[in-house]
Amino acid sequence: MTDASLSPLALAPRAGGRPLAIAAAVVAVLALVPLVIADKFILSLGSTVFITAIAAASLHLIIRTGHISLGHAAFMGIGAYASVLTVMELGLPFAAGVLAAFVAPCLLALAIGPLVLRLTGKYFVLVTFLFGEIVRMVFVEWKSVTGGANGIFGIPAPAPVFNDPAAYYYLSLGAGVLLVGFIARLLASEVGRAIDAVRESERLAHCSGIPVLRLKVTIFALGCGIVGIAGALQGHFIRYVDPTSYSVVQSLNLVVVNVIGGMQTLVGPLVGTLFYLILPEMLRGYVELQRIIFGIILIIVMAFLPGGLVELGGRALQLVRRRAGS
């Protein structure tokens, strides 16, 4: 994360009207999709894209503080189980489930955050890697609550109307706009300025009056809470939760989405999500080949293109402009 020469696409603090206008246009187009396309499969893919985008963006928020979590899917799973249990065991409405999905991972993150966020980058990666595995094992072992390795089936839709894929499409789009918008706003605020300062030089930031650990714990807890909501949306969408859906492999997928898209701006995970979910559709039937391609992309991006696809796009844009200018 050293190269920051991404000015064309970087969401600088308090970026002016243009990114906002682009975002509004994208959301408007997405909102029109169900009116034009009634294909159930496309609409379901849309919901998956929005849910994954929320999860990836929440990981981006944590990555911006300089910590890559390899246990993010564990928090997503905690959110999913929390919501599903709230709705199915306690008989409370979906809204209460979403609240639980935010609060439960948030509290856990607040508890472990002060300990693990003292660690530097690589140790944090390792701890979260192991932590994610522990959480998955808890899902498997705590059979009376989680249903063990089989998970929980027959999860109801948030409300009868959401059995319709178009309705779920709008629900997840709405959640996506709200939560990703929140993250964008946060990163563009004074808090975002502090986050970037901490990542770039923790020592300097601390001595400029930024309460480093408190900031990191707060952001970590927020990111984990948001991914919990994504977990709830996913659980009630695919109608079951099980431990393998929230294993280290899934955490890794969220990292892949961020790395492919680019870790320096919030646009990165969004582009990464699209690429990550659309490419497989083009290679349908060749699941293994997708994974191999993703693997090779990861290698190439980490070796030559630390800014990911967004950086590639930015460079292409510059090139086009230079051509046009000369």
Partner: peptide
């Protein structure tokens, strides 16, 4: 490490004024 090298001079100052 006296400055944030990737940022503008003004942004450096703004970070100092954070608190």
């Amino acid at each position: 490490t006296t400055v944030y090298g990737d940022r503008t001079v003004r942004e450096n100052g703004m970070r100092g004024a954070y608190l």
